[in-house]
Each structure stands twice: as structure tokens, then as C-alpha cells.
Amino acid sequence: MPFRQRNVLPGFRLTLGFTLLYLSLLVLIPLAGVFVKTSTLTWDQFWGTVTAPRVLASYRLSFGAALLAATVNLFFGLLVAWVLVRYQFWGKRLVDALVDLPFALPTAVAGIALTAVYSKNGWIGAWLAPLGINVAFTPLGVFVALTFIGLPFVVRTVQPVLEDLDAELEEAAASLGANRWQTFRRVLLPILFPSLLTGFALAFARALGEYGSVVFISGNMPMKTEITPLLIITKLEQYDYAGATALAVVMLVVSFVMLLTINLLQWWGSRSHAPA
């Protein structure tokens, strides 16, 4: 939008100015600090820090588990939203409130609870152990924790879109001969796609930055169950501030590129049917 364009809504400059100041104070300046601190390292030092084998293993776990958890949340979040919107059942409000719990719970509490339940002598872990499945203190545990904290995102982004969806669309599809699956695939999914993508991106970003719940359930074994945020904390504890920020820079850049890609995807997806 050109700056000079006359607009019936007043306050464009004021609100934009405030937005920029607000984002600068809260996001841009602190993040720039990360880059500034990192720049005290030489390129070789930087490269050596961010490609150390222990660090590379932590990237794999952090990004891999976050991506996997967000994907799982994509499907089950859609399912939960579907059930909450489409069906009436006893206790629906309670289930609806439960979905938000991972938002509200201190993540450390979640981590401790998950560890207790999924460890070998926990309620669920005790049943899984004989099958050879160990959850606590394995990468699987990291994945479980990240799935837990990412659950509300997809549900809460898809739910309002699903609620607004006109039942007549499905009836129209049916009267044109489409079966249930075709109606879902060709009518509902394209309409839900942008909100699913948003939910996915949010869940992914949240999982990537998660620390509190993971450190309890993962056991933090180097090369095996160590996530990148934990390595950053470790470096901070060793007063290696520049090293810590170097890792932070890598995480920042990679997650920014991923979120940007998702945003572009979304823009591309919604471009076609937006009114011109």
C-alpha cells in the first residue's frame, strides 16, 4: 500500500509507527544483539562451534522431533477440531477446555508429569516397557513432549474456520455425486488448508523453542537426547556466551527460513480464491 494513499481509516501512520517500535523493542533489537554477540567470533570459530558433532546431533533431534510433532499435531489437531465442531456429546465443553491446557501449564510441570507417566514404572510406561518401547529418556520422549505442547495450535486455528463452514457446501458436493472422501478432499480440505498450515507453523515454531518440558523427559544424553536449546543453556552455564549465541543464530536463521516458506506457501494457496 502506498504511504500517500488516502484512506478512510485514520491513524495509519500512528499505528504503523507503534507497531514498528513495539516489534523493535521486543523482537528486533534483542535478536540483533544475538547477531552482534556472535560476530565477536571469527568465521572459523563460528563454523567450528555450530558444526561440532554433538551440536549437529542436537539439530537433528530438535528439528526432526519438532517437525514430526507438528505433523502429528496437524492430523490429530484436525481430528480433535472436527469432533469438537461437528458432534454434540456430553462433556464437550470439558474436552474443549482440556485442549488449552498445554498453553497454560508451566512446561516444567508438563515435563515432570510426562516423565512420571511414561517412565518404565509409570502408568503408561509400565505397559509399553514389556513391548520394548521406552519413551522416557529417549528421542521418542522428546517427540511426545513436543507433541503435547503443540496440540492446541492446530485445533485452535482450524476450529473457527470449521465452525464457519457452510453445511450446504457438503450438501452441494453430495448432490453432484461426490462421495464422503471426495467431498473432504476436494471441498473441505482446500478451504481448511490455510488454517491447517498456520496451525502447523505455530506448532512447529513452538516445538522448536521448547525447553522446559523436554529437559525432564529426554534425560539430556549427549549425541542422543540433547536438544539444541539445552546446548545453548549448557554453553551459557560455561560462560561461553559467544558460542551460545552462535547456536542461537543458526536456530534463528533456519526457523525463520522455514516459517517464511510456510507463509509463502499459504499466500500462494490463498491467492487463487481471494477476491481481486
Partner: peptide, 17 residues
């Protein structure tokens, strides 16, 4: 879906995507 009855709705119910 198997009746082969064309149906038009008051609010059109077009697929907006």
C-alpha cells in the same frame, strides 16, 4: 450422491476455492 438430482441453494453454495 446417487440420486442424480441437481440442487440449487438459496445462497448458491459455490466452492469458493
Amino acid at each position: 450422491s446417487q440420486r442424480k438430482a441437481g440442487f440449487a441453494f438459496q445462497h448458491y453454495a459455490l466452492f469458493r476455492h
